[in-house]
Design a protein around this nucleic acid. Structure first.
Lengths: 153, 153
DNA sequence: GTTTCTGCAAAGGTTTTGCAACAAA
DNA sequence: TTTGTTGCAAAACCTTTGCAGAAAC
């Protein structure tokens, strides 16, 4: 799997005086073996496909470390559960558009948006740290053809 | 309290074939007796200050109705819990900036931002429905004076 | 009178934690 | 060895729900 991510996680782990373990490796491998967003429970499933013995407790503990390290990002898709996004390493400033017709998620980024966000933040007397935009929308395709090409789920 | 809100909620209730009750009135009064954001539990506290008998079950059921009616909006402040915002009636398109130094929340809106969001959405092939921007930032005041004038909490 | 609502207590779902055995360094 | 890690089972949280009595219309 992605050696670069494993070694970045390893580096983070060492800096904290923690230890690299087989269980953690499995969870990291599962988390970055996809570009899909996932819930804690879905990550548990993915991890158990690699090692069926993966426990929930270790999963949650490792998940917290991945988020703290910045490798994984918690995102709010406006659903009931928390989702995690493994794509911020490749696309550091992306945002999410949720299709209300098929529930799919489109990632996008826009540099005008970033400039404007920074500008607004400074005007308010702050120095920007992180910015997060979620757009919910209906797709034109659904409006014109009655169908949404993105599969539901 | 705010008669306009009570009657808008009443209208919503009637349209759904539901009933106006003293308990619901109390919760609506509590929710709109503040301009602060609150959690379900905080709303329960505020409601019990008006009527100590308010039950959690009724609180959650009424909260769901308030959100469904559009009077109250669920927001993600990047904390552990869900927060609810009673200010969308007065400021329909506002966003939130969270001060990482004192944890306070600043509401803001910007029409350039809205135009840009719509523009991006359409470029992606969608028709915008709702847009939600959260900015986390450090305040200049903290950087220069070592203190943040907004009280924590 | 009929239908909805309330409040309790119990259940549900997700996440955290205490602890003893285990493993990394 | 020492210190951190795991996995279990239990607890902690927050939210929802079944049900019987109460209230709205």
């Amino acid at each position: 799997m992605d050696k670069a991510i494993q070694s970045r996680f390893d580096e983070f782990i060492r800096k904290k005086g923690l230890r690299r373990t087989a269980q953690r490796d499995v969870i990291v491998e599962a988390a970055f073996g996809t570009t899909e967003h996932f819930t804690a429970d879905e990550l548990w499933d993915m991890s158990r496909r690699i090692d069926p013995a993966t426990s929930r407790a270790t999963l949650y503990r490792t998940l917290a470390l991945l988020v703290e390290s910045g490798l994984l990002q918690e995102i709010d898709l406006g659903r009931d559960q928390k989702y995690y996004d493994p794509n911020f390493l490749d696309h550091p400033n992306h945002n999410h558009l949720i299709c209300l017709d098929c529930n799919s998620v489109v990632e996008f980024s826009d540099e005008h948006m970033e400039v404007l966000e920074d500008c607004i933040t400074r005007r308010l007397g702050f120095r920007p740290s992180s910015k997060n935009l979620r757009i919910e929308a209906h797709c034109e395709e659904m409006a014109s053809t009655g169908h949404c090409k993105r599969a539901d789920k």
